[in-house]
Computed example of a mutant assay.
Amino acid sequence: MSGDRLLLIVEDDASFGRVLSRSFERRGYTVLHAANFDEMQDFLKQHNPTHAVVDMKLDGKASGLTCVQALHEHDPEMLIVVLTGFASINTAVEAIKLGACQYLAKPSNTDDIEAAFNHVAGTEEPELTNRPTSLKNLEWERIHEVLVETDFNISETARRLGMHRRTLARKLEKQRVK
């Protein structure tokens, strides 16, 4: 596979990866989809992508940041966009330092990602989004952040958040964590 727009998507959510792949194919990209770091490495042995979309949190031994670093080492000119459901300033800074050109919080669509590819240079007046963060989203992000810190130990997470374990379990039932 060759072409001037070869996109590598590194995403462990198969359904989201398929949707993203189809959407970019309709826009004229040739798309490869890797579910993890090892699959990504296999693709890099045979292909030279010009663009990449990397999910920050991947199942397996390597994170999205590890993928970004490997992609940048493979081709420093590659345009790499990082997607994450758990955006933080620390991971954004690290992603950019390791070679990503942009960092987007989910939910992001194909238009957002393509705009990120086309907007590599910084600007003094960045466009502010009109998507206010709801209290529910902030709560959910904090719960997930503590779950990750405690290696998904519900009792310890509830203790750190100062809530009853059953209350946390009910919240987690409403919004499943993968």
Results as ranks from 00 to 15, higher is better:
A52K: 09
L65E: 02
V19K: 11
D42W: 08
G17H: 13
Q41T: 10
Y29G: 09
H47A: 01
V53W: 05
K97H: 11
Q41P: 01
S134T: 13
T123G: 00
D55E: 05
E39G: 11
S134K: 00
L79E: 08
D111K: 13
A116F: 03
I89V: 10
L128C: 03
F43H: 15
S15T: 10
E94C: 03
L104R: 10
R26G: 07
S63L: 04
E127W: 00
G60R: 04
E39D: 08
L98S: 06
V54L: 09
V82Q: 06
D59H: 14
L83A: 05
N118D: 03
Y103L: 05
D75K: 09
I89C: 02
E25F: 03
V19A: 15
P49A: 05
F43V: 07
Q41I: 10
S15P: 09
Y29T: 11
E124P: 06
E124D: 14
R18S: 10
A116T: 00
T50C: 04
T133L: 10
D75G: 01
I89Q: 08
S23Y: 09
D59V: 08
P132Y: 09
P49N: 04
S63K: 14
V31N: 15
R22M: 15
V82M: 12
D59N: 15
L83V: 10
S63M: 06
V81R: 05
G99N: 05
H33F: 03
H119F: 00
L128M: 07
L83G: 04
I96N: 01
D75Q: 09
V54E: 03
M56V: 02
T110V: 15
E77L: 01
A70C: 07
T110S: 15
L20S: 14
A92K: 01
G122L: 04
F37V: 06
N130G: 14
L98P: 00
R131G: 00
G85C: 06
T123M: 00
H51E: 09
M40G: 03
R18G: 07
N130T: 06
S15W: 07
F16K: 09
L128Q: 02
N36E: 05
H119M: 01
A105Q: 12
R131W: 00
G85P: 12
E77V: 01
A116E: 03
L65W: 12
R27F: 02
E94P: 06
R18V: 11
V68C: 10
L20C: 14
L71K: 11
G122R: 02
N109V: 05
H33L: 11
N109G: 15
L128R: 01
D59L: 12
E94T: 12
H119C: 01
S88H: 02
K106Y: 01
A121G: 13
L58P: 14
D59P: 14
L71Q: 13
V93R: 03
A92I: 00
V93P: 06
E25I: 10
L20G: 12
G28N: 10
C101A: 09
S108A: 14
H51V: 10
N48S: 14
